[in-house]
Amino acid sequence: MQKITTQKWPLPKDLFSIKKLPWEFFLILITVFVFILSAYASPYFLDPWNLSDATFNFVEKAIVALPLAMLIICRDIDLSVASIIALSSVAMGFAAQYGFNIPVIVIIGISVGMLCGLVNGAVVTHFEIPAIVVTIGTMSLFRGISYILLGDQVLKDYPEGFDYFGQGYIYWVFSFEFMLFLVATLFFYFLLHKTNFGRRCYAIGNNPTAAFYSGINVKRHRLLLFVIVGALAGVAAVLLTSRLGSTRPTIALGWELSIITMVVLGGVNIMGGAGTITGVFIAVFLMGIVTFGLGLLNVPGIVMSIIIGAMLISVIATPVLIKKFSQRKG
């Protein structure tokens, strides 16, 4: 029998629930394996400061991956996140140039992010256009605006103390960024798994029409999620700008793809309706460890992209293959 429903993707979760093994278990297994392998391969891997340094490379992306997971569970997607980061970084740069103090700069950064999210959400929900098309458009639009505002200039007049967000440590090796990521993970875990708001995401993702008839304001819910994604992209912009200490229009270029890779690797169904924050949380570390471990072995970044790409496909193909073979036997 040929599969006819379009891209009815066998959910890893459904698959493993038969054997009482969740997708997260599978992910943890790979992560631990990669961790041990890296620790063997390089003597510098297990140093706590090195590990802490490694978190800087993925924490900003991971902070956006959390709300994006919820958005994807709702059958939407936001490809413009990296451009939102760029635009809100530019806004912060100008705010700093006008001599605003740190809290105002941060508020401006996050508000610009929310505003961009609002634009995405409003166009998607009001005109009922697939989110992927709209956000491909706004991806060029937001980054384009950053180019118009900034051209080939650099903004780097950030006030003293602004570098704390991206470079400061709260305690010992635990950076501000990393702790913020942990807090964000807890927040989104509760939001998605313990509140009505979160349950509604699954309802909408599984069947928007049914969700609508059961009394969920689907449009408002999706709009809100776009704004949340925008807000967190704004937060990521604060962290990144503070860490780099400068803003160029090319900031965070191409990040949308690694962020989406994190989400998909975390077992979130790109067709909506399934996925957990725990999965995304582990996938973030998996990607972080792979990148860091390979980096210690002097593997160039572009070769890592081969490995990340292959990982993305194989991690998703493996359960499908297992299912195919087990069906043949049964």
Partner: peptide, 13 residues
Amino acid sequence: PFWQMAISGGVIV
């Protein structure tokens, strides 16, 4: 030419 990206983005939307 810095306008080019924003214009094509706006056109798409």
